[in-house]
Design a protein around this nucleic acid. Structure first.
Lengths: 205, 205
DNA sequence: GCAACACCTGTACGAAAGGACAGGCTGCCG
DNA sequence: CGGCAGCCTGTCCTTTCGTACAGGTGTTGC
């Protein structure tokens, strides 16, 4: 029997997952959580085999939750079950320790496959997502932002000017311009408004 | 018996809703759809009492779907069941003919309440959303964009310059500037990057 | 008829933004 | 060690942005 904890901010999704899993015969839902902290508590208490985790949680980012549960229970297997893909989101999750990344838009059966795979010690990536990742590896320049760039991108989205950003980060305005230009090149845009739009759509911020 | 059609791009959500509704005794799910066109077909075929509709559908916008089903079957009652709120999204949906607006983040029982209400001919708005709407009515200036402004906002998000926008719309660059300033005032921002971020977060684009 | 609103336009100006040069420092990896 | 990547800084210049002033047209509704 595979013991699973579910974490999703939509109760209806928890219902749907639970129904599918209970019908399977070999998977058992031992706890549900609608917030990151609850997921953490549930993992501590139940010590499950697998955590099914949504990335869009109120308050904490799903990635933080993932990092925290991994710190508590490094052997725990994790399936990311989320609405949105995007290479940056996927690879961030995998780097944070996820073992599978399944989209909510696919069939309900796929999640069950993923859970069984990770419980058996194997990673699981749907072909579509794997293909996308491979495409990015071939073209590593695009959409791969450094820490500093991501930081500045966030400030861009807050509407700060280069000067405001420079004083916030204690660097020269010229340096901000440099980073901003780098961001534009990576995102394939020509100005900050477009950069913010693209970044938000790609889930970079 | 209330006959219901479900439309959501996540099969797992359809499962969850269906489970909750079937258990209720007085609600019956007669069709499911994961795309707008399927929802339309299902409404034509089944002539249901209520349509439960997600606003985030692949391809078509949920609002377009709503307008189309309303054209086919004006007496059909519609419950919007979506992940995100925001006064602009809510009021757009209500203006497009929705009878209820329920967030996925709330308890599963709330959706059932909403379905029963609209089937009985009453509208349904959760207190939290209603309160938010009232707040906006008190301050009508903010976050209420005209057609033209919304149009320009979209082009802003595409990274177009004022000049590019002006030639696209066949108006003077000066006029674009005027509209952009209006947008800033309504959104409470000071530049285009921030405007795009706020607009996207509020679901205006 | 006139008030309100959406939409459009002009001139002028200071403040940013963004690109094109060129260069320095650090830490990591082969 | 030498190369590479991330991060930082400078000057110069052109373009764009954003706001200030002020004003015109058409439509809707009281």
């Amino acid at each position: 029997m595979i013991r699973v904890v579910l974490a999703d901010d939509h109760p209806i999704v928890l219902d749907g997952i639970a129904m599918n899993l209970e019908d399977s015969g070999d998977v058992q839902v031992v706890a549900r959580a609608v917030r990151g902290s609850e997921a953490l508590d549930a993992v501590k208490r139940e010590n499950p085999d697998v955590l099914v985790l949504d990335l869009e949680l109120p308050g904490e980012s799903g990635l933080d939750v993932l990092a925290n549960v991994k710190r508590i229970s490094p052997v725990l297997r994790t399936v990311i079950f989320t609405a949105y893909g995007g290479t940056e989101r996927v690879s961030s999750a995998l780097r944070a320790g996820a073992d599978a990344y399944v989209l909510k838009g696919t069939s309900s059966a796929e999640l069950l496959d993923a859970i069984r795979s990770v419980a058996a010690g194997r990673a699981y990536l749907p072909p579509a997502i794997a293909a996308e990742l491979i495409g990015t590896l071939r073209d590593p320049a695009r959409e791969r932002l450094t820490q500093r760039e991501t930081e500045i991108l966030r400030l861009l989205a807050d509407g700060l000017s280069n000067k405001a950003i420079s004083s916030q980060l204690n660097i020269a305005e010229r340096t901000v311009k440099f980073h901003v230009s780098e961001i534009f090149a990576r995102l394939g845009v020509a100005n900050r408004a477009h950069a913010v739009a693209v970044a938000q759509k790609a889930g970079l911020i």
